[in-house]
Design a protein around this nucleic acid. Sequence first.
DNA 1: GTTCTAGAAC
DNA 2: GTTCTAGAAC
Length: 993
Amino acid sequence: MEMDIDDASQLKGEEEKEKGKPIVVLLVGAPASGKSTFCESVMQASSRPWVRICQDTINNGKAGTKPQCLKSATISLKEGKSVFIDRCNLNKEQRVDFVKLGGPQVEVHAVVLDLPAKLCISRIAKRTGHEGNLQGGKAAAVVNRMLQTKELPKLSEGFSRIMFCQGETDVQTALNTYTALGPSDTLPHGCFGQKDPNAKTQLGIMKFLKRPHETNSQDSTCSQFTDGKGPCSKAQETVSSLSGTASQKIKVSEDPAVNSISQNDNDVPTLAFPSISTADFRFDLEKASNIIVEKVEQFMDKLGNTRLVLVDLTQRSKILSLVRAKAAQKNMDSKRFFTFVGDITQLHSKGGLHCDVIANAANWRLKPGGGGVNAAIFDAGGPALESATKNLAKSLLPGNALVVPLPSTSPLYSREKVTHVIHVLGPNMNPHRPNCLDNDYIKGCKILEDAYSSLFEGFLSIAKTKVKFPNRSSQGTQSELSVPDNKTEGILRNHFSHSEQETENCKNYESDRSKKCTKSENAVVVVGCKEQDLVSPLSGAASDETKAGENPAAGSISQHDDVPTLAFPSISTAGFQFDLEKASTIIVDKVEEFMDKLGNARLVLVDLSNRSEILSLVRAKAAQKNIDSKRFFTYVGDITRLYSEGGLRCNVIANATNWRLKAGGGGVNSAIFDAGGPDLEAMTKNQASSLLPGEAVVVPLPSTSPLYTREGVTHVIHVLGPNMNPERPNCLDGDYIKGCKILQDAYSSLFEKFLSIANTQVKIPKISGKSIPSEPSLPEEKIKGTLTKSWSPWVQALYKIAMQPEKYKNEVLEASDDVVVLNDMYPKAKKHLLVLARFEGLDCLADARKEHIQTLKTLHAVGLKWAEKFLHEDASLVFRLGYHSVPSMRQLHLHVISQDFESKHLKNKKHWNSFNTDFFRDSLDVIEEVNDMGKAILEDEKLLSLELRCHRCRSVHPNMPRLKSHISNCQAPFPAALNGRLVLVQSNSASDP
DNA sequence: GTTCTAGAAC
DNA sequence: GTTCTAGAAC
């Protein structure tokens, strides 16, 4: 069936007819579904005059009424402005008056932000000060209630156009659509993006997938579809038809969470492909992006409901942005072609994007290795892919593609549900690689075009066979297919050999159109749903669209979370095999029990996988009990990298440990001991040598532990739960009466210990009157003020030590009323100490004034004492004492550093120059300057990027390794400029004759 | 193909 | 402050 529609001429007519018509766009969505953000994003970039009418603020910044909104809208429309109606508009009644704003001169559109409730709730829970003023734990209840009465808008209400957005990708599409809408442009009428069960599918090969029953839950969208003006209306209809009602039902009842890739589309044949030739082969990105977009466009019509996805590893991928921009310009259907940031070998498992075919940017020998995508795909595909490839061809010419069906033994098949890999060889522009085209872009472009053509044709040939022609045997099908070439023919045969199941399913479609089919579709969607059931937006699929849309989700874990937070794994459910159902009940009960005592502290249940069953169970139960999701929530991520990878700051983490409190044994315990380093192990040993089931022990983390420096974790609480695993010691042998008791005890101990930490931690904004006498009162305002904001934990590390050295006994070498001495955590030389001033408010050298002169002198004296101590141990050392002009860490600290600079931590130019240019201010000079001029001379950070010069002979070196190798040998005397500033054992002139 | 840097993210 | 990694330099 042809998809060609002469849209150009139709649009033209439309434009002339409706030039300059203002539009009313009703945003439809729950609180925090992104309505305001949507409007603002469009308005920021649009050339059309827009007015956003927000009921939450229309009344001089306060919430107003519907009539106010209507009035304001009418005025704006008269002025020729288009209008966003930014209120929930969730049911027909709420919308009807706004629809009436429409008329012959005004079109009314709806943009439906039909995002998972969970996402909205988590956004609300995290945000403060939003106009809507719906915050905190009530959010869940409110949103859920609102969504229960949700009625999706229909064209029959009077809208001329409706866009349904059920994921970030959809939102981005809508954003692009409205942003690109110039003052005199118009948009095609009809429904877009809806996963409508009634949508009639009639195009080509897709006819067999037509929904068997028509439930009539929506009216007439489909007929309007066929009247739709744009080409995309048809296309979208086709796409969406695959997974209709089932997903909708689930959406309403189970709120599948964050999901930037519309999961409804995940049954659709999809090709994920890397940009060909632009990495190692160094093809010009601009040209490559043009070719990609053109080729995709050319194939668009033949694709049916299949999808093409350009994949790259990083958000910053230039080729992705170029392609996105160009595709948007061409108004390409972003449902059938989009970009995706992620690992092409883990799209399903990590990204939640199901692609049954992936392309490989191969080399001409079709061999693994070589880095990049090729190495990754061969790695992931395993030997099975290698041999399957070898069986089909030994080499590939530039511009060609080879379709390889994946044996079901390949991990890519089992884990990622990839059925085929298509190797593609593009042109090479890299002189260091074979067959370089030597910048001949005429040839190069031709070859790259051919490469994409071959790739897409190969994919189509697969897609066609996948859209099972149900009532035919595989043999029959084969003979009827137009097979592109011999290779593919062989491949197709292979494909059928491992897809009997699929063929079977197709028969169901054809022969049994009633319940069986529905059921199986439901099942499919449920599975997809679970996998996607991410907890928080943070862990969502790494779709770049997320970013582009300036999506509030990304920040939904609040940045200003100085709140005491305990992250804990589910105890006993992993290695100890405790029943998940029971465990989840206990967790929720215990959390509930402690909720009142928590103050503003938070508890976070953490698990590694999106698919974590315990997380979903706990989430469901916590939601049922309406537990404040601000103070208790679940999180998907590595508990040892919550801050560095997830941006979630947890000052305390729990460890599901073993009774010996020993490292190892896999799972969380191994990970935490690993991450904590030897310090954690040593500290743990100090606290206890073993643990009984149901008990917990608190281990304060030395500031030398990476968990402390990198993650800001101050305490680890080891917890031992009951063991139900017969292969582990002390198995309870299925005795869940005992087991539950112990598990309850374990959580009680855990939470109690956490509370005791939280209560003594300085950070708790103290509830009035309740002071904690033993603590020095730290100026919270100061922390909150100039230096912290949302800075990383390490910035504060020295300050904390200076203020409470007794808490850091393990690392403090010396402490007095005035100073604290400790080893630099990352010494840049054999000996490298820091002498901290214990002077409140002296954050850095810039703060030093006359009144600090005594402090400066004390720092110097103490530094000198330590340098001399070291000189006693090693007379060959030479020391300098001084300050960084602009330090990276808060609290004035004097560096005492030996001039060997022999250290693995000395890694880059900045490190070097911070000690070996004028950026490093010698302590004696500083004292003199402050004394004479009232402050110290500070040098600019520009000095840090100077060339690398030997500090002795002043020779220049091209890079750090060379410099380091040079200084390890350089024996030149120190420059005269350092006279009087070096601390060293006087050369033995005294004993000289 | 590897080494190294610089910039971003944390 | 470190870590990570793309891209430059070699």
